[in-house]
Nucleic acid binder design. Structure first.
Lengths: 257, 257
DNA sequence: GTAGGGCCTAACGTCGCGTCAGGGTCAAGA
DNA sequence: TCTTGACCCTGACGCGACGTTAGGCCCTAC
C-alpha cells in the first residue's frame, strides 16, 4: 500500500481525464481530500485517492450526485468487494437500458421506412427519467435470477397501462402517508410508521413478487443509494428516504420477534 | 400524420418521463415549441412533437447540451433516416464504452482479490471525460468497418503513452494557431487558415489513417455536432469549432480544384 | 357553485463544475 | 544568480438545465 509515488493535481487530472478544477471542487466539499500536502501547500494524491476517484467518476457517469456518491462510498468502505460488484451491476443495468433505447431507435427506423407512426406509449422506452414502478421491477432483478424475479416477471407482464397507473398510485399513497408522519415528527420506529412499512411490503408482495421482511429491508437499502429513487423521495419531504428505510427496518424487527 | 390526438403538457410529461417544467423550458428556449395552443393558452403537442421530444431526450441522455441538440435536429430534419442511424451509432458507442468500464471494474475486483494495486494508467479506461486523440480514433470507427479504420487501429495500437502525448501536442498546436487566426479576424477561407487545415489533415493522415480531404470534411462535420469536441474547441476561442470546419471545407475545395 | 386538479407565467434557487483574477512555487536555462 | 514559463494555490463570479415556489386562470365533477 502506498508504495507508489504521490501525484500532484495536474498529474491526477490528466490520468483521470478530469480538470484540475474538478479535483479542487471534490476537495472543497470533502468528497476527495488528498491524503497529503507538500510543504508549499500542493495537494498530493496517493494510490488510494486514485481508487476513490475512479469510483467517484464511475458513479457520476451513471448520474449520481456528489452527495449521494459521498454516502455510497462511506458505506462501501466496509466491503470493497461487494461495492465493486454493486457498481458492476449498475453498469450492466445501463448496458441493458442502452440496448432498450437502441431497440426503440430500430422501431423508429422501421416506422419511418414504412411511413407509419410509432406507438406513443413505447416511444420513450429506456428514456424515462425515472418510473419508479418499472424500476422496482429492475431492482430485484439485481437480486439475481431468483425465483422471486421470475415470479415478478410473470405477474407484471400481464399488467396493462391502467394497472400500472393504479399500482403506482397505491404505492405513492403509502409514501405520502409516511411523509405526513415524518412532517408530524412521528418516530420511524413507531407503530404508525411500521404499519405503513408493512403496508408497503404487502403492496410489493401482492403486485410484484413474494417479499419477505428481510428482502424488503434489502430493497429499502437501495432507496438511499440510488439517485433516481432519492430524487423521487426528497420531493415528498426532506429526509423521507432515510425515514422509510428506518421504518422498514423497524418493521422487520417487529415481524421477526 | 397528425391523425392522432393532441396532448397537454402533463400527458406528454408522463409519457416521456420528464417534468412539466422541462417541457416549459424547452418551449421557452425554442427547442420544442408545441405545434398548437388551445383557446385558453394550453400547450398542445402533436405526434411530430413527441418524435422530436424523443430525439431530444435521447441526445440529452448521451450528454449533449440543449443548444447542440437544437443544431443537430435542424441538420437532421433533412434526412430522418440517416439521423436515426447516427443516433444508433452513438448509442452503440456508449454500449462499448460501458463495456470498457465494466472490464475496468473486473480488473479492480481481481486486484483487490489478489491484494495488488491496479495499473494507474488503465484505471480510468472509459471514464475519461474527453481525450480527444482517443476520440478521434473512435470517430472514424463510425465511418464503418472501412479499411481506413483497420489501418488506424493497426497503427495506433503501437503507440505508447509518450507517443500519445506528443501526437496530441502536435494536434493542439494546429488548433492553437487556428485560434490565433480567428482572433486576428483572418478569414476561414484565407490561405493561412486553409494551410493549417491541410496541416491538420496530414496530421491525421500520418498518425491515424489515410485521410483524404473529403473524409476530412466529414470528420470535421462532427466537430460542431459533438459536445465533447465542442467543449474542447470553445475553450480555445468562441466559434473556433465552426471556424475550423469552414477552413477544412475551404481546403477541400482548394485541393480538388 | 365551489372544490380540486391541471394549466399558465414569472422569477429565484441549485448542482457541478468553468473561468478568471491575483499571487506563490519550482526546475531549467542564460 | 536571476529569470522565465509551467504548475500550484485560494477566492469568487458565471452558467446550463432544470427544480421550486408563488400567484392566478381553466375546467370537469359533484
Amino acid at each position: 500500500m502506498g508504495t507508489r509515488q504521490l501525484h500532484t493535481v495536474g498529474e491526477v487530472a490528466s490520468l483521470a481525464g478530469v480538470t484540475v478544477r474538478t479535483l479542487h471542487h471534490y476537495d472543497r466539499i470533502g468528497l476527495l481530500v488528498p491524503s497529503g500536502r507538500s510543504e508549499s501547500g500542493y495537494r498530493l494524491y496517493a494510490y488510494a485517492d486514485l481508487e476513490r476517484l475512479r469510483e467517484i467518476r464511475l458513479l457520476r457517469e451513471l448520474g449520481f450526485g456528489l452527495d449521494a456518491i459521498g454516502r455510497l462510498l462511506d458505506v462501501a468502505a466496509y466491503d470493497r468487494r461487494s461495492a465493486l460488484v454493486a457498481q458492476r451491476d449498475l453498469l450492466v443495468e445501463r448496458l441493458e437500458r442502452t440496448q432498450r433505447i437502441i431497440r426503440g431507435v430500430d422501431r423508429a427506423l422501421k416506422a419511418t421506412a414504412e411511413g407509419k407512426e410509432m406507438d406513443e406509449t413505447e416511444m420513450f422506452e429506456g428514456l424515462e427519467e425515472f418510473d419508479h414502478t418499472r424500476y422496482e421491477a429492475e431492482v430485484e432483478q439485481r437480486w439475481g435470477d431468483s425465483e422471486a424475479y421470475k415470479e415478478s416477471k410473470r405477474r407484471t407482464s400481464g399488467y396493462g397501462k391502467a394497472d400500472w397507473t393504479r399500482i403506482k398510485k397505491e404505492g405513492d399513497a403509502v409514501f405520502a402517508r409516511l411523509a405526513e408522519l415524518l412532517a408530524r415528527g412521528a418516530r420511524a420506529d413507531g407503530r404508525e410508521a411500521m404499519d405503513l412499512a408493512e403496508e408497503h411490503r404487502r403492496h410489493i408482495d401482492r403486485w410484484f413478487y413474494p417479499c419477505s421482511p428481510g428482502l424488503h429491508r434489502q430493497v429499502a437499502a437501495l432507496y438511499t443509494a440510488d439517485p433516481r429513487f432519492e430524487a423521487y423521495f426528497e420531493k415528498h419531504g426532506s429526509g423521507l428516504a432515510g425515514y422509510v428505510q428506518e421504518a422498514i427496518r423497524a418493521n422487520e424487527v417487529r415481524s421477526t420477534s
